Amino acid sequence: MTTEVRRHELAAFLRHRREHISPEQVGLPRGRRRRTPGLRREEVAQLSAVGVTWYTWLEQARPIQVSVQVLDALARALRLDANERAHLFQLAGAVDPTPATSCPSVTEAMRGVLEQLEPYPACLQNSRYDILAYNRTYGMLLCDLDAVPAQDRNCLILSYTHDEWRSSIVHLEEVQRLMAARFRAAMAGHLGEPAWKMLLKRLRAESEEFREAWERHEVVAHRSKRKQFLNRHVGLVTVDHTDLWLAPEAGPRMVTYVPADEVSRERLERLHAMAVARARHTGEVSAAQGTME
Score class of each variant (00 low, 15 high):
2 T>Q: 14
4 E>N: 04
10 L>D: 07
12 A>Y: 04
13 F>A: 09
17 R>F: 10
17 R>H: 13
24 E>D: 12
26 V>M: 12
29 P>A: 10
30 R>Q: 11
33 R>T: 09
39 L>I: 09
39 L>K: 08
41 R>A: 04
43 E>T: 03
49 A>Q: 13
50 V>C: 15
51 G>R: 10
55 Y>Q: 02
55 Y>C: 04
55 Y>M: 11
60 Q>L: 12
62 R>T: 01
79 R>G: 00
79 R>I: 09
82 A>N: 07
83 N>R: 04
89 F>T: 00
91 L>I: 06
93 G>S: 11
96 D>W: 12
100 A>P: 02
106 V>E: 08
108 E>D: 15
116 Q>Y: 09
122 A>Q: 02
125 Q>S: 11
128 R>G: 07
129 Y>M: 07
132 L>K: 01
133 A>E: 09
137 T>A: 05
143 C>D: 15
146 D>E: 15
151 Q>G: 02
161 T>A: 05
163 D>W: 07
166 R>F: 01
169 I>G: 05
170 V>R: 03
173 E>N: 05
175 V>P: 01
179 M>Y: 12
181 A>P: 03
184 R>Y: 00
187 M>F: 08
190 H>K: 08
191 L>Y: 10
202 R>E: 13
206 E>A: 13
208 E>A: 10
209 E>A: 13
219 V>E: 08
227 K>Q: 11
227 K>Y: 00
228 Q>L: 10
231 N>E: 14
233 H>S: 13
234 V>F: 12
234 V>W: 08
234 V>R: 04
236 L>I: 10
248 P>L: 11
249 E>H: 15
251 G>A: 12
252 P>D: 10
257 Y>K: 01
259 P>S: 03
263 V>E: 15
263 V>S: 14
267 R>T: 01
274 M>P: 01
276 V>Q: 09
276 V>I: 15
281 H>V: 10
283 G>E: 14
287 A>G: 01
